[in-house]
């Protein structure tokens, strides 16, 4: 589904701030793969997602999505096939617009927009039904401005917007990191629900080792712009947090790990 080959990205090349953000990334995701991506600060996790989605342009390498080369396309053109949820709950929605208006924007992702009315009666019925799946009672508040919602509600809404039009690849960038533990669990459960029921291919960045082990069928670890660990199936299922920490030190030559990653 996703085929990344020889991907390199350098920030601020030729200056004192030059930083190798991605180094020779090769990654192949099969349809239905649910990959958790873990690593320390500055490991390149978010950069990888941003290069896939077109926020940043790679220096070299190629990205194919479902057989189509996308690495030369601008961000808004790639969006047709990508669903994205960001770490900051404020980033995925338009605060001064209604819940249903936000959903209507997402329902047209990658399609031409015209002079038809933004939210049709048909849309409303669909949104009501999909919002009910979130189990947050948002379906009865569809005309509420998103500004009035809590961070968790906004993140759940962003998730729904990301999958409303089925994406070929779902990119979750630490989308639960800014939420309190209970809300984070709820949003993560919702993510699992949509990914399994819609058979989505997903790349999820997380800081939380336990989440990385418990969710998805494959785990990738990054350090200093490189992929240093890639496990799947039974081997991944049987991992423990302690083993992960050991593997990290062994392979990256660095001492892990901040408390947030250990305990989170």
């Amino acid at each position: 589904m996703l085929q990344i080959t020889g991907l390199n990205k350098i920030f601020s090349p030729g200056t004192v701030n030059e930083r190798l953000a991605l180094e020779d990334i090769n990654l192949h995701l099969l349809p239905g793969d649910y990959v958790t991506l873990i690593g320390g600060n500055g490991a390149g996790k978010s950069t990888l997602l941003n290069v896939i989605s077109g926020v940043h342009r790679q220096d070299s390498g190629s990205i194919y999505l479902d057989g189509k080369r996308i690495d030369h396309l601008p961000e808004h053109r790639r969006a047709a096939d990508l669903g994205r949820v960001f770490q900051d709950p404020l980033m995925g929605t338009a605060a001064d617009m209604e819940i249903q208006e936000n959903l209507a924007l997402a329902a047209l992702r990658g399609k031409p927009r015209g002079l038809a009315w933004g939210v049709s009666a048909q849309d409303k019925a669909l949104f009501h039904q999909r919002l009910a799946e979130l189990d947050l009672d948002l379906q009865d508040r569809m005309a509420t401005k998103v500004r009035m919602l809590s961070g968790g509600q906004r993140q759940a809404l962003t998730l729904l917007m990301a999958i409303l039009k089925t994406p070929k690849l779902l990119l979750l960038d630490e989308h639960t990191a800014a939420l309190d533990p209970k809300t984070a669990r709820k949003v993560l459960e919702l993510s699992d629900h949509f990914i399994s029921s819609m058979k989505l291919t997903c790349l999820m960045v997380t800081h939380n080792m336990r989440d990385a082990i418990q969710h998805g069928n494959r785990l990738i670890m990054m350090s200093q712009g490189r992929i240093i660990l890639d496990v799947e199936g039974e081997q991944k299922k049987n991992l423990t947090v302690e083993q992960l920490v050991q593997m990290f030190s062994l392979r990256s030559g660095e001492e892990l790990v901040n408390d947030r990653m250990m305990l989170g």
């Binding site: 808004h76 969006a79 980033m91 338009a94 924007l105 997402a106 992702r109 399609k111 927009r113």
Partner: peptide
């Protein structure tokens, strides 16, 4: 709607496929 959203959150608008 896309124009209104652009003033609100251009990041989100691009993520929804709008230039």
């Amino acid at each position: 709607s896309a124009i209104r959203a652009t003033g609100n959150n251009p990041h989100m608008v691009r993520a929804q496929g709008v230039n």
